[in-house]
Design a protein around this nucleic acid. Structure first.
Lengths: 223, 223, 223, 223
DNA sequence: AATGAATGAGCCTTCATTCAT
DNA sequence: GATGAATGAAGGCTCATTCAT
């Protein structure tokens, strides 16, 4: 369409098209021709702008993740003095929006999921950088909730319980179970936030109780 | 029972080799040559015995899932008169073993995960058939735990919380977080069963409490 | 044409076609399609039989050189008790035939010449192996002719004079100067053998004389 | 004489860069991007200034040869009354310098050699024009040395012996045989001039003697 | 029945060239 | 006049599949 702009427009169009196509078909099943057709460009343009199919993929991933993070930060709308319960809810809100969120950002979830199944060597670094801070945040929140007596393993288990509940929704839209398909997506996300927060806080509390019981048991034994 | 290398034995060898290679590299990155080499067979054998690469993939998936189901049925070691709490624990044990379990059956988890990311059209039917009964079972268990007042959506949400906690572990070994990598896998599974059961029962109870409160609130309003 | 033989026939046909086309157009300007068309084969066959274009090139080179060496060994028709003059003539005959010789073997010369201009990395070893023995032989013959007082450098210079006289003829047929184009090739080769032998023996003798004079001068000085 | 970077200067820079790169990598392996990068120019400049890659190549060849001819003319430093022996030595000096000479002019030899291996149709004319005078000169010198009884073919053979001895050295530096690599290039050229002159004069004399003997034999037969 | 030989379709990439500015 | 942007054409290579035996 637009021609001779300054090269950035074409590049952006390719990136957007690639994000969609990669999310739909995955890395291997996507051909450069697919992307270029979708972007109304020619088959040489991907290599011209990005160097190679792999580098385009890396660019897509980086961009998708950064966009998602910018739009749905883990402390989304969280007051500074909020307690860990509120922080957890914010975290869950952020994750669910990343995974199920509207528009192009929703692709991040799909791409992430695909990467889990068929990791692309070149992206390990990117993922580590992107996932690291998120992981740290949830660990810290849960540590606050569990108390100082919790072991790293117990924290890790709880973190997984929370994260997996959210990540598991990184499905294609059409694949939701029959009870949920007919819901509006925004409403679905809101309800899921409430559910997962309730469910998880209860779970974490149960783990905390177990820790305390074990400890008081130990103390009694120690006497 | 004849022990000569007849057609069926070849076919089985191909199926086994394909299961491994597909689980390692995914559908696209696996070549027929890879599989045939691993099975000490010739390049034409896949098409000869299975018709095509895709049909072989379907066969692998079916077989892997059926094997996993046979080895780790959802009511694994469950007494007939057990309560829903016991049933839930059995269900969790079954899922975790499918996903993280030892030997060839562990492949089911990897393949399943890959399928989530890049669903193969032809396999939708197989998965629906395989997943249907499992889904029904967990729904029934949770309905028992939540009580008759729970809506389908509430049950579905809780089911997801449980299932996703298990499915999320369908990672490659090397990708586990640092807190867990050094654990023996059998021990890891055992601990996870305990954790997820504890966590989920607490969560489900919280949901049940909420339902009851809402209901008593309604009643009060009705007065 | 011939199909389903045993794979070797096709391979040989490709090798022959490749020898011609590479000799005509050089490595870079030759496309796999060119070769396959010339061999009545399909574009995938080169990779099927040889692995890559480069490996085919290496095979062509090896084969061409081995054939030339087998057909025109450096001691072609040389009696055991022949003197170094006869040996030199045999050597020259062998080189000229390799470079200008009839049939497919003549390609060796062209390919060699092209390699001189645009060396292909992968072939260095092959060339070293092939050229080494030839070089040793001519050095030995010339050492005999020059006498024991000759330095390595003097021998190397004379060897170059002989070899370059022969190698220089590695032209395309149509490129011979007007005085020689109309000659029958076999006769041309015969005459060139006589000429280069006469010319070179005289040159070598002159170098020898120079060495002797220098030496006697040295002796006189020493007195 | 204006010093601003106008069109001609750009063009000259491209020509110089192209001469180097073509000499290093040959026509096919050189990309227009290579040349433009080396000349600090843009990718369109080659086509803009020279029309096409091929035309640039022709320009490079013409320029390189003309430069070499200007710097090392065949009668380099030759007194007007010099005999044919001196003339031959000058000719050899000129050729060796063209082929092995220092600086950019040495490229002529490499390019020439590459052209021998992979002649470019479009350049045939240029080469014929450039080579014609040189060829005439060496033929005339040798005719003087051989005497009036020599046939054109005998002269052509001797000319080839001389020219090929020089042209054969058109190798890359790193490819010289072990006896010569350690020498300083200027010294190597000087020694080669002496060697080839000595060697060739002796060879030519031998041919002359043969002619005279054959003639006296003929005369005797005629009696 | 079973297999090695052979192939056609398609993919990623390169690059000389053209175009709009 | 001069240049960065953009592209069409083609090349090497892979691989699932077919074919002759």
């Amino acid at each position: 369409m637009a021609k001779r702009k300054d090269g950035l427009e074409r590049k952006a169009a390719l990136l957007e098209a690639a994000t969609q196509v990669f999310a739909e078909k995955g890395f291997r099943d996507t051909t450069i021709a697919d992307i270029c057709t979708a972007a109304n460009s020619n088959t040489a343009s991907v290599n011209y702008y990005f160097g190679s199919k792999e580098e385009l993929y890396a660019a897509v991933w980086t961009s998708a993740f950064r966009n998602a993070l910018a739009k749905y930060p883990p402390d989304m709308g969280l007051p500074a003095d909020a307690g860990p319960e509120e922080a957890l809810k914010s975290f869950i809100r952020s994750m669910l929006n990343k995974v199920l969120g509207a528009g192009e950002l929703g692709y991040a979830g799909q791409i992430l999921l695909m990467e889990l199944g068929q990791p692309t060597e070149a992206l390990d670094l990117i993922k580590r950088d992107a996932i690291g801070p998120i992981r740290k945040r949830v660990m810290r929140i849960i540590r606050q909730l569990l108390g100082s007596e919790a072991t790293d393993q117990q924290i890790a288990f709880c973190a997984m319980s929370v994260v997996h509940q959210c990540m598991g929704f990184a499905f294609k839209k059409g694949k939701l179970p029959p009870e949920l398909v007919q819901m509006d997506k925004a409403e679905l996300i809101d309800r899921l936030i409430e559910h997962i927060t309730l469910f998880s806080l209860a779970g974490i509390t149960a783990v905390k109780t177990q820790i305390e019981q074990a400890q008081s048991g130990d103390e009694r034994v120690a006497k």
